[in-house]
């Protein structure tokens, strides 16, 4: 059942990206272009997602001790702001602004096989692999991913 629901979650996520227009880098880049051809749609996507996720998570954590098909809710517990978090986020934003793709939309758009996507995705996976193998030089604590 875990696998079925993981597959279903991925499918719903991808459909959500397509319906919202976020699998199209043109819409993302236009959201980021306030002084040009601005398209505010992305703000509505985030708003719609948070409007469901925030009460959904709150209700879930209040009503259940464990997930339906697993033993624990794996929720990040850190609350410190270390350089690694900010450096990574800043680098991610630059790449996002260059290509108009973040990981979810890039994978969703992969089957459409646009030449830019076919280049972006392998390099993205390469970047993830490098980050996984880059020791944290700035802080001493070790942690998992969000």
């Amino acid at each position: 059942m875990k696998q079925v629901f993981a597959l279903l979650s991925g499918l719903v996520f991808g459909i959500g990206l397509i319906v919202s227009g976020m699998a199209d880098p043109a819409k993302v880049l236009n959201f980021l272009d306030v002084f040009g051809t601005w398209d505010p749609s992305l703000a509505f996507v985030m708003g719609g997602a948070i409007a469901v996720t925030a009460p959904g998570f709150a209700l879930l954590f209040r009503s259940r001790q464990t997930p339906y098909f697993d033993s624990t809710f794996r929720v990040p517990t850190r609350n410190d702001l270390e350089p690694k978090l900010l450096t990574g986020a800043a680098i991610f934003g630059v790449g996002w602004g260059l290509g108009g793709f973040c990981p979810g939309p890039a994978l969703t758009a992969l089957p459409l096989a646009a030449s830019g996507t076919l280049i972006f995705v392998p390099f993205m996976l390469g970047g993830m692999w490098i980050a996984r193998h880059t020791p944290d030089l700035m802080s001493k604590t070790k942690e998992g991913t969000a």
């Binding site: 059942m1 875990k2 629901f5 993981a6 279903l8 979650s9 991925g10 719903v12 996520f13 459909i15 959500g16 990206l17 397509i18 319906v19 919202s20 227009g21 976020m22 749609s41 992305l42 509505f44 996507v45 985030m46 708003g47 719609g48 997602a49 948070i50 409007a51 469901v52 996720t53 959904g56 998570f57 879930l60 259940r64 464990t66 997930p67 339906y68 098909f69 697993d70 033993s71 624990t72 809710f73 794996r74």
Partner: peptide, 21 residues
């Protein structure tokens, strides 16, 4: 459409947390 698609993304996040944690 963006609001609706966003809601689907949110539903997916809640579904994955509810079933797989």
């Amino acid at each position: 459409l963006s609001l609706g698609g966003g809601a689907l993304i949110g539903a997916s996040a809640v579904l994955l947390m509810a079933t797989n944690g």
